[in-house]
């Protein structure tokens, strides 16, 4: 274990995976270098088909990488996966359990397989808010309950690293909030949570750091603030006494200006000095000038613009 990888929960270098199908070869992940720091929530963003799930499957040993290296909690995987799997809880895509068994029975089988006492099952069911529905068959669960059962299953191991792949897919707003709170709370407990999503708003709300991928390659990585802050602001919010006059002057100067909540929003520039100079020339003096920070969605669109990727769905 190197010092660098010891400080990382997950690290991949040059990771590549190609699938073969009837139409030919499809490169799902191409040379991915991903670093997930220890502790906190790390967002793993990318549009559908960008390679997030394939990467997660490779990390969990479900899919074989064509080339590249991976470490999970300092262990080379898949070779040393058996040594570290007890510290990793994962939900890959939709939760998948035996539909004819109850939630409790499903968890009991998993607990027994890893040598955990049966008592822990009721404990994690309670933790996941399924205490009174544990005896019901899994097939009768709502999507939210299935997701909660999957989270309960990950907690059977007392993991240091949790990997959630699109955890809020198909959930209602209350379910989404619940899952977000759970992820946040796990992160605050010092665990590392890797949450993959194509919903930018979701990641922005829960993640401390983020990696953005497209076409199986890393596009950006860092803290959420850094990734957003690195992008140029593309509009400015301007406060001025005479909004109508200021709007006319700036519009005449070729800028796109809109009134919004008693302020002007000037799109297409982040040059505050230029805006101030133009208005001052007409004896209009700025009393507020704020660059509008790019949100994660615009960052994502900017990063993926050159990749020819499809736009992601609207954030929820």
């Amino acid at each position: 274990m190197t010092t660098a990888t010891a400080e990382l929960a997950i690290s991949t270098r040059g990771l590549r995976k190609t699938y073969r199908n009837r139409k030919g070869r499809h490169v799902a992940v191409q040379g991915l270098d991903l670093d997930v720091p220890l502790g906190g929530v790390h967002g793993f963003l990318g549009p559908n088909g960008s390679g997030k799930t394939t990467t997660i499957r490779m990390l969990l040993g479900l899919v074989r990488a064509d080339s590249g290296s991976m470490t999970v909690l300092g262990h080379d995987v898949p070779k040393q996966l058996p040594e570290v799997v007890g510290q990793v809880g994962a939900i890959v895509e939709a939760p998948k359990f035996f539909p004819a068994f109850s939630g409790r029975k499903n968890l009991q089988l998993l607990a027994e397989a890893i040598g955990r006492p049966r008592g822990v099952v009721d404990q994690v069911l309670e933790q996941a808010g399924l205490g009174d529905r544990g005896k019901d068959k899994y097939r009768s669960y709502s999507l939210g309950m299935k997701q909660r059962l999957a989270i309960a299953a990950t907690l059977l191991k007392e993991p240091d690293l949790l990997i959630f792949d699109e955890p809020t897919n198909g959930l209602d707003p209350a379910g989404i909030r619940e899952i977000r709170n759970t992820m946040r709370s796990l992160g605050e407990q010092g665990k590392t949570v890797l949450v993959s999503s194509h919903i930018l708003d979701e990641v922005e709300q829960v993640a401390d750091s983020v990696s953005i991928i497209g076409h199986g390659r890393l596009l950006a990585s860092g803290t959420v603030n850094d990734v957003i802050g690195n992008q140029k602001a593309t509009s400015m919010r301007v406060g001025v006494a005479d909004l109508m006059a200021a709007q006319r002057i700036l519009t005449d100067g070729g800028l796109l200006v809109q009134q919004e909540s008693g302020l002007l929003v000037v799109t297409g520039t982040s040059d505050g000095a230029e805006i101030t100079r133009r208005l001052a020339c007409h004896d209009l003096f700025v009393n507020e000038l704020t660059p509008v920070r790019a949100d994660l969605e615009s960052v994502f669109l900017e990063l993926t613009a050159d990749e020819g990727l499809e736009t992601v769905g609207a954030p929820r």
């Binding site: 969990l60 040993g61 479900l62 898949p78 996966l81 890959v92 939709a94 998948k96 998993l110 397989a113």
Partner: peptide, 11 residues
């Protein structure tokens, strides 16, 4: 699909 879940417990 539960095989994938099982393998995340015993790889």
């Amino acid at each position: 699909g539960s095989m994938a879940n099982w393998l995340t417990f015993e790889p």
